[in-house]
Design a protein around this nucleic acid. Structure first.
Length: 943
RNA sequence: GCGGAUGUGGUGAAAUUGGUAGACACGCCAGACUUAGGAUCUGGUGCCGCGAGGCAUGGGGGUUCGAGUCCCUUCAUCCGCACCA
């Protein structure tokens, strides 16, 4: 009795704390130690090879972290720690994408300044991250909303504003070089990317007014102004994100949303389309990711063809990828927004067209593309003339043709295109068959293989050949030309919002000019409210003394009132981490030369096209302009899968406050309700906690099965409204950061989406306790012994080294965790407590469970940190086997296994297999046709 | 509509190059120790069948001595689509 008391006292005093796995104490101790010793500080000067491991930085939302967020961070953290053990100088930073719409929404609702709420969100975010034990170098942290950061975002924007894309040199160049070209040659050799109609010679250029020259230069700049439509909600007086528009009305309030043209900034990313495609060959992204980007860029080869309009001086220019089908054109379709619609509509059709255009105004682009079942359109009354056979072709307008793609007009070939076919059927337009038997009249046949019919001079010609013949003829006739098109459009870069980077632009008498560099950063002014300005302008328009600057009499000087979009700051942030405190440059060139590309970039697929393409484009532009020495930002990209929530459901008997267990619910008429996953153990509801959860459940009655209330389950996106979010803090508190880290990895492959299930975490926790017990006994304390390991122990160790090294390198962390489990199970069975083995195990496990490894590393007598140990070296000699348990099949069906020496010759193996009892039973009386023997793998007897 | 991904036990999954399907865990069942157990340990656990054995990787077909893996076809689910980040 007395002894027990002593023991308890001793435990409380901390004397014996090292005997049991007290993860709370261990983790706090080492986290503090790492901060104190600057264990994760990274130097820009090192003789070691570099490795740059980056996470897509988070937007600090008010909702806090749920278990889905840290998945990628843990994966990259393990990789960074592994590389450090392998002798690399590893850059592994973290920061915040802190500008964004949600903070502004929140400000509108509550009046709190976005800077204040963002700060609070970041603080809670940070403490949640700190819990998990990441090896980020926090000295390099920044926020995109820091003026010291966005100064450089503005600076880079100005570089883009001051640059144009030289298609001959295939790179961006300063606008001054373009001016010199214009002065000498006009634009004869440099087609205007913004407007192909603009042509002038040197004399004309030199005689243009300043305003005209600036207008023309604008059509060349990489960052330029143009008119584009936004979602305008007159009732709210604001411009809405696509996100905020649902079924044509505003999400908040349900007010109608229409399109409104506004002058906005764009980035001329289309000039980089080809290089963005080619660059994909040089980087290691998943094929799926590359496909998505290729598809987004959407390069297509085709032709532009000009059709005369009957009885009019106007032409209609269409873009087609199938010039070979020119004789199958039965109608034309132009986008409702196309300027030609007004001009060619006949007076009889005028009213119908006006009504149709109004209908289209209310439709989102998404809706227009997605709802193909519902066919809409309107005849303009005008006809085009087929230049080859003179046929008169009706011109329609329909929402399925988008103004922004190609020329905004198509020639419709119903027998070869399903949408055209459906349209023709719907409006009873006669269909010409140019495919012969390949067209059945039931559906279009979009094939590019085969011969053409009913097609004048290309009848009987293979389609692919016909394409060239037609385009040659078009070019000869001067009515069209070959044309490469991209689905990708230039990137809209203006937001009519407050919480973003202000544009470093001044309008002098309406003409934009760059703010002088020494005036950067242009700081976001403080505002009292976040309401939009007039006519959809951003809230900055209300800050009149900020917007309007003193100017000479008769002139005006105004600031830009829009702000930059979310992706501005994230397009180049990976460069800033290299040199985050530099106030002379966004990143010193020597330093970016040292760190170079990001070696491993981890983030979600939701950024597959947006962020990644913009960031790739900025990198290429900065490369072209000589700021950095590489033109692809991310060498290798890994997309972590989404962790879906596993919701729990209860079934309320309709009209009562009675809840029936899942197994019995079919006997009642019930309503399904989401219940907080945190009051459910597995699928068993804690009924008491349920009663206390919300007032309306306080006197809930339950219909149980086997004395338990079993919940239904449903896998869906994690969200607060579904009560299926799980907070990592709670799990770290209950099981420790090491367990949490390993469990997240154990769930399944990093790249794969998977549902979260808290229950399984105990298995990983048990593993760590079991690992701990190889070193520590609760009574005896440290039990690690010296002495030579046995052959079996070395075999287990080296098998594990090989597996962990391979799996960690290819980020197969789930299999690595199970390899650790197998290893600890084996060492436990072998009763191995030898230091020579366990010490190496600590190094292997450190990237996954850094806290417990540091603690044990110290406990077994090391003075330094395990972070600086070097990764164990695998030795083949410890794992060689002399025999193999061969599976032996008869006709491919496994019948037995036989242990055979690996040295045995083919003849010997055949002999052994055929003389085996079981095999004889299955081959009895049959002729052996052949025996397949794959050394080291298997044996198959064929009869 | 376009594009992408995923379908394997009750659950998460493994099988790296076409070669023993279900490793490792969760859960479940039985047992040991214990005043107690949400601790620890041992054994069992794909399905059908008493058994021999048969059947099994969303469904159907094919290639192969051999298919979760390759080919064709089909179904289902999830994600993205340019102003959410």
């Amino acid at each position: 009795m007395q002894n027990i008391k002593l023991l308890i006292t001793a435990r409380k005093s901390g004397l014996f704390t090292h005997m049991e796995y007290n993860f709370r104490q261990i983790e706090r101790k080492w986290q503090e130690h790492w901060v104190k010793t600057g264990a994760y500080k990274v130097s820009n000067n090192s003789s070691k090879p570099k490795c740059y491991v980056l996470d897509m930085f988070p937007y600090p939302s008010g909702a806090g972290l749920h278990v889905g967020h840290p998945l990628g961070y843990i994966a990259s953290d393990i990789y960074a720690r592994f590389k450090r053990l392998k002798g690399f100088n590893v850059l592994h930073p973290m920061g915040y994408d802190a500008f964004g719409l949600p903070a502004e929404q929140y400000a509108l609702e509550t009046g709190q300044h976005p800077a204040v709420t963002t700060e609070a969100n970041i603080n809670s975010f940070r403490s949640q991250l700190d819990n998990i034990g990441f090896c980020f170098d926090w000295d390099r942290e920044f926020r995109t909303s820091d003026p010291s950061y966005y100064k450089w975002t503005q600076y880079i924007f100005l570089q883009l504003f001051n640059a144009w894309y030289n298609r001959h040199a295939n790179k961006a160049e300063p606008v001054e070089t373009l001016v010199r070209i214009f002065e000498a040659d006009g634009n004869a050799h440099h087609e205007c990317p913004g407007d192909r109609q603009i042509r002038f010679n040197a004399d004309e250029w030199n005689q243009f007014s300043y305003e005209r020259q600036q207008e023309i230069l604008m059509e060349y700049r990489l960052a330029y102004l143009a008119y584009a439509e936004v979602n305008w909600c007159p009732a709210l007086g604001t411009v809405l994100a696509n996100d905020e528009v649902v079924n044509g009305v505003s999400e908040r309030g349900g007010h109608p949303v229409i399109k409104k043209k506004m002058r906005q900034w764009f980035l001329r990313i289309t000039e980089y389309a080809d290089r963005l495609l080619e660059g994909l060959e040089k980087v290691s992204y998943s094929e799926a990711m590359k496909d998505m980007q290729r598809n987004w860029i959407g390069k297509s080869q085709g032709a532009e063809i000009k059709f005369n309009i009957a009885g009019s001086l106007d032409d209609i220019v269409v873009y087609t990828t199938r010039p070979d089908t020119i004789f199958g054109v039965d109608f034309m379709v132009i986008a409702p927004e196309h300027e030609l619609v007004e001009r060619i509509t006949t007076s009889e059709q005028h009213e119908a067209i006006a009504a149709y255009k109004e209908y289209v105004q209310s439709r989102s682009e998404r809706e227009r593309m997605a709802e193909v079942k519902q066919i809409t359109g309107c005849f303009t009354g005008a006809y085009a003339v087929n230049p080859f056979d003179g046929r008169k072709i009706p011109i329609w307008t329909s929402e399925y043709v988008l103004a922004g793609y190609g020329t905004g007009a198509i020639m419709a070939v119903p027998c070869g295109d399903q949408r055209d076919f459906s349209f023709a059927k719907h409006f009873n337009i006669p269909i010409t068959n140019i495919l012969g038997d390949a067209f059945n009249g039931e559906e279009a046949n979009p094939t590019k293989e085969g011969k053409l019919f009913n097609s004048d001079f290309i009848t009987g010609v293979e389609m692919k050949e016909a394409m060239n013949l037609v385009v040659d003829k078009i070019e000869n006739l001067g009515i069209g030309k070959r044309q490469i098109n991209f689905r990708m459009r230039d990137a809209g870069f203006s937001r009519q919002r407050y919480w973003g980077e202000p544009f470093p632009i001044l309008y002098r008498n309406g003409i934009p000019e760059a703010l002088p560099e020494d005036q950067l950063p242009l700081e976001l002014p403080h505002v009292e409210n976040y309401r939009p300005g007039e006519e959809g302008e951003g809230p900055l328009a209300n800050v009149t003394d900020w917007v309007n600057l003193p100017a000479a009499a008769g002139t005006s000087l105004r600031r830009e009132t829009n702000t930059m979009p979310g992706y501005a700051g994230s397009s180049w942030y990976f460069l800033r981490y290299m040199d985050p405190h530099n106030d002379q440059a966004f990143c010193d060139r020597k330093i970016s030369d040292y760190w170079g590309q990001v070696d491993l970039y981890i983030g979600g697929t939701e950024h597959a096209v947006g962020h990644l393409l913009y960031s790739r484009m900025w990198t290429k532009a900065l490369f072209d302009l000589g700021f950095i020495g590489f033109d692809e930002p991310y060498k290798k990209l890994v997309n972590q899968g989404m962790i879906t929530g596993s919701s729990r459901l209860v079934y309320r008997v309709r009209g009562t406050n009675q809840y029936v267990s899942a197994g019995l619910k079919d006997k009642y008429d019930t309503d399904e309700l989401h219940v907080d996953v945190n009051i459910v153990d597995g699928v068993e509801l804690d009924t008491e906690a349920f009663r206390q959860w919300r007032a309306d459940y306080s006197n809930a009655q339950f219909i149980l099965e086997d004395g338990k209330y079993i919940c239904g389950t449903l896998s869906e996106k994690m969200s607060k409204s579904k009560f299926n979010t799980v907070n990592p803090d709670m799990l770290v508190d209950k099981f420790g950061a090491d367990t949490f880290r390993m469990y997240e990895m154990f769930l399944g492959p990093v790249e794969q989406s998977k549902p979260w299930e808290t229950k399984g975490i105990e298995g990983v926790h048990r593993f760590l306790k079991k690992f701990w017990r190889l070193f520590m006994d609760e009574q005896k304390g440290l039990i690690v012994k010296t002495g030579e390991p046995t052959a079996d122990e070395l075999k287990t160790l080296h098998k594990t080294i090989r597996k962990i090294e391979e799996d960690t390198e290819r980020m197969s962390y789930n299999t690595a965790v199970s390899a650790f489990m197998v290893c600890v199970n084996e060492l436990t069975d072998l009763k191995c407590n030898k230091k020579a083995v366990l010490e190496q195990m600590l190094v292997l496990l450190t990237p996954y469970a850094p806290h417990v490894c540091e603690e044990l590393w110290q406990a077994i007598g090391n003075s330094g940190s395990v972070l600086d140990a070097s990764f164990p070296v695998f030795e083949e000699k410890y794992v060689v086997e002399s025999t193999k348990e061969y599976p032996v099949s008869v006709n491919g069906k496994l019948r037995t296994t036989i242990n055979i020496s690996l040295d045995a010759s083919t003849e010997e193996v055949h002999q052994i297999a055929l003389s085996n009892e079981v095999i004889q039973k299955w081959t009895d009386g049959q002729t052996i046709k052949k025996i397949i023997f794959v050394p080291g793998k298997m044996i198959n007897v064929v009869i």
